[in-house]
């Protein structure tokens, strides 16, 4: 695991998984099991379910459930921290660079999982808008 990812992982295991959980009646529900998009391409054990609550076009709350390796779990936590309080327009612009900047790493596994969670977000946004 990348050192920056390890550091963040240690932080969340020490302080608690801030965004872990689920939301009732979410505005957007994204299920990577159903979408068949694992967070890590070589894993059948790296799935996430994301629950997003939107109030007046702003992300009011976000939670996730996962079954994944530490790196993918870090990505899920970073993802939530990046989108909470943001507008839908800002969500549409979310990219891997934001994840890289957030931890200060370009680790391949970390960015791959970031790319996949962005793909899932886009699917969720499409469904929300339709």
């Amino acid at each position: 695991m990348d050192e920056k990812v390890v550091q963040y992982y240690r932080k969340i295991t020490r302080e608690g998984y801030r965004y872990s959980g689920s939301l009732e009646n979410p505005s957007i529900f994204i299920d990577s099991v159903g979408e068949k998009i694992p967070l890590c391409s070589n894993s059948v054990n790296a799935y996430v379910r994301i629950y997003v609550k939107i109030q007046e076009e702003i992300i009011e709350d976000v939670k996730y459930l996962c079954t994944c390796k530490p790196t993918a779990n870090v990505v899920a936590e970073i993802f939530c921290s990046l989108i909470i309080g943001k507008s839908i327009a800002e969500l549409e612009k979310l990219n891997e660079q934001a994840f890289a900047d957030s931890l200060g790493t370009s680790d391949e596994e970390y960015l791959e999982a970031s790319g996949n969670i962005i793909k899932l977000l886009q699917i969720g946004l499409e469904k929300y808008k339709s």
């Binding site: 998984y17 099991v33 054990n45």
Partner: peptide, 12 residues
Amino acid sequence: WMLPSPPSEHRM
């Protein structure tokens, strides 16, 4: 048991 859950409930 293998579906997404809070990390505290993870097992393998």
